[in-house]
């Protein structure tokens, strides 16, 4: 790993050059080799200690290509990696006279048998995995006989309705994270710092409701206005007409006190009426009681022998 570190800034140390120098000539008669990843040289770092990187990618001038080397640490060393500045420039920008012709081949039109081979290989891979996962092929899955001596045991698999809903509910994602080294990131960073306007644009105001205020906080008028308009549009203090607002609130307050007074008066009147009625009823009851008392006295005086007799016998 230490050999992969770049050369210190002001040192005379020259990093070891691996491989061969490839000279590029710009004359049109020479052959230009495409700058594909596969064309860079890969060498074995076999005599290195165990925990160091085993495959080193080299640039054309023989120095180590750190991007490609690090990007393929855990992977196949021949894996393509886009790690250079050239990869960030589009082909049409690099080659302005590039004609747009990239035909897609299918099995019938492909000039060689690479597509066919690819399909066959994939089918073979899939078949191998399926065989491993399903255990048996479909034919001998149904019944299998085990014969041991005289006894013969018939083992048959339980047939299931393929349309039954799944028995197990999957809840947790067991597959997260990448198994490979993260790829080199080829994107422009935003060079401009975020301005205050940008930050304000992203600021989300706290939610205010005109209906619920459980904690009983005082909410300023502009916030109430904003909430009344569905949280849209900014309403500053200037937008609120304070004189009118105070007039409205005064009027509301006055109306409220008037209403309360009226209510009080009505309640007093009702109370008085009630008391009067009560008094009348009491008088009536008193009179009734008086009358009944006098009547009973008369009755007692008139014929009381029977009563006496019953009492003494």
């Amino acid at each position: 790993m230490s050999s992969l570190l770049p050369k210190p800034k002001y040192s005379n140390y020259e990093p070891p050059k691996w491989g061969i120098y490839h000279q590029r000539t710009s004359s049109s008669s020479s052959i230009l080799v495409p700058s594909l990843q596969s064309s860079t040289t890969i060498i074995d770092n076999t005599n290195a200690p165990k925990n160091t990187i085993q495959k080193l990618h080299l640039n054309d001038d023989g120095s180590i290509n750190y991007n490609a080397t690090l990007a393929t640490v855990n992977a196949d060393p021949h894996q393509r990696v886009q790690a250079t500045y050239d990869d960030t420039v589009s082909l049409k920008a690099r080659f302005p006279r590039l004609k747009h012709s990239f035909p897609r081949y299918d099995l019938a039109t492909c000039p060689d048998d690479t597509l066919k081979q690819c399909v066959i290989d994939t089918q073979r891979t899939i078949d191998a995995i399926l065989k491993q996962k399903l255990g048996h092929t479909a034919v001998d899955n149904d019944t299998a006989t085990l014969s041991s001596g005289t006894n013969e045991i018939l083992v048959s698999t339980y047939r299931e309705d393929p349309l039954l809903p799944p028995k197990f509910r999957l809840r947790k994602n067991r597959h997260s994270g990448s198994p490979s080294v993260p790829a080199p990131i080829l994107k422009k960073t935003s060079e401009a710092n975020i301005t205050k306007e940008d930050r304000d644009k992203w600021r989300i105001p706290a939610a205010i409701s005109n209906w619920k205020n459980n904690q009983g906080f005082t909410i300023s008028i502009d916030k109430r206005m904003q909430a009344a308009h569905g949280g849209e549009g900014s309403s500053s203090a200037e937008d609120v007409n304070f004189t009118k607002f105070s007039q409205v609130s005064m009027a509301l307050q006055q109306a409220e006190t008037e209403a309360r007074e009226e209510l009080n008066q009505k309640r007093d009147l009702m109370k008085q009426l009630e008391e009067k009625k009560q008094r009348e009823r009491e008088l009536q009851l008193k009179a009734l009681a008086e009358e009944s008392r006098t009547r009973s006295k008369r009755h007692y005086n008139g014929d009381n022998t029977k009563y006496h007799k019953r009492r003494h016998h």
Binding site: S26, S28, S29, L32, P34, S38, I42, H78, L91, R94, F95, P96, R97, L98, K99, S101, F102, P103, Y105, C110, P111, T114, L115, Q117, C118
Partner: peptide
């Protein structure tokens, strides 16, 4: 001897990038 400009020349080579449907190794 060919008098193609470098750009066109490269674009010709680009054709094989697309004509190469599968790649196993290097």
């Amino acid at each position: 001897t060919d008098e193609l400009s470098e750009a066109t020349y490269k674009s010709v080579r680009l054709d094989y990038l697309t004509r190469l449907p599968s790649s196993q190794g290097s």
